[in-house]
Design a protein around this nucleic acid. Sequence first.
RNA 1: GUGAGUGUAGCUCAGCUGGUUAGAGCGCCUGUCUGUGGAACAGGAGGUCGAGGGUUCAAACCCCUUCACUCACCCCA
Length: 444
Amino acid sequence: MPQPKIQPRLPKGMRDFLPADMIKREYVFSIVREVFHLFGFEPLQTPVLELHETLMGKYGEDAEKLIFNAQHPGGKEELALRYDLTVPLARVVAQYQNEISLPFRRYQLSPVWRAERPQRGRYREFYQCDADIVGAAGMNADAEIVALITTVLRRLGIPQFTVKINNRKLLTAIGKYAGVEGDALANLYRSVDKFDKIGADGVREELIQRGLPANVTERVMTLVAAQVAPADRLDFVEDVMGSLPEAKVAIHELRELIAHLDTMGVPAEHREFDQTMVRGLGYYTGPIFETLINEPNLGSVTGGGRYDDLVGLFRGESLPTTGTALGIERIIDVMDILNLYPPGIGGTVVEVFVAVFDETTRSASTALAAELRTGGVRTELYMQDKSVGKQMAYADKKGVPVVALLGADEIAAGVVKFKRLRDGVEISAPRAEAAAQARALIKG
RNA sequence: GUGAGUGUAGCUCAGCUGGUUAGAGCGCCUGUCUGUGGAACAGGAGGUCGAGGGUUCAAACCCCUUCACUCACCCCA
């Protein structure tokens, strides 16, 4: 009876990662963790499922439609897959007030789920790495977040990126300045945010289409479309609407933030004030950040900002908090396209492949593999019964750097032969020095 | 959720205005090479042409439905 075959398929927008991919992903993860530790952020982990009520009412109506619900038959609790790592953080901070001392610096590297339509650089299951500082109101906290982002991206070798910086309060001020209120404000932001994409004319057109009066549109446009060099933009915005109280606060915060960035040595080429940058999520209250990579444009690679009131939804009393999410998937896509992995990152973790000549030498090969492993060399011992040529081909295809050859001759001589596949160099090493010589051959 | 495009071997694709046994390159397997991979040469396996229905003497090709993927919008990492 032939077995009925089940189609091997994956849910929409979700992916498997085969070993060669995982090795690259883990490299990126390791750099990210290293830099986060360098900045004094501590790891946190939360469940993939949250109570439905924990997530609802935090992201805005549109975003909530993208939350995956998760139920089992007869389940009493309403559950949902987490949509981001920020709301779970807010819950944790409120839930463990006695255990957590402020300011709380934590990072979390975990998958999140969004039921969006998949596209390039957009998946339904993807990893985010969030770093946040809870309980710090000063702009120095926001500056650390920006410094963290630039350090990670530089460590990864990404050549061209810009952290765009704006302030939610400035956007509010723009609304005031132009005379826009209520629902129209959200539409205004949406159009302004597209400035990079559709240009000044595009924004003007959209604003008119959305029914804004001509004079209002023009006031917005003077602020948005001005051809001002990034370094002078803040001065320009201050000239235009510095008298508005909201703008005053926002500009002061931005200047403070920039001063901190200078002190911290964050290169100016990697940051830019942009009054047209808007973040979609509803909970931001102060500075906002977003990172774009010009070369392969896959959308924003980080996003974040200050959200002083979110924790208060769980805690009753609000807590000033700022942070960012790194879009690990998009960063990895960029790394892949630009091939930014160090040469040592291959398709395998194996350093030495131990070939088995025949059944009479198998036990000697097995012993050698054990010796190499004891010596700290990552070793694969061949398990099948095939010709040495086939074994070499297998090792080569897999990308193993060195093959250990141990036939009757070597056994008799008390040595082992190592062959480096990259260039075919062979050495003969006494058994006692096997691990050390193998390591030297890999490095050389 | 809205709109457009694509769907032929493991991968990338070809297949003229519908015509009989559906092709190429790469990859894979075998051999030349019974203690050695990457090259060359020779051979080989592998496809219900996404699925279902319809038109026709005849469909990979035309029509309908459906699914999947891609792109744009929306939104976002």
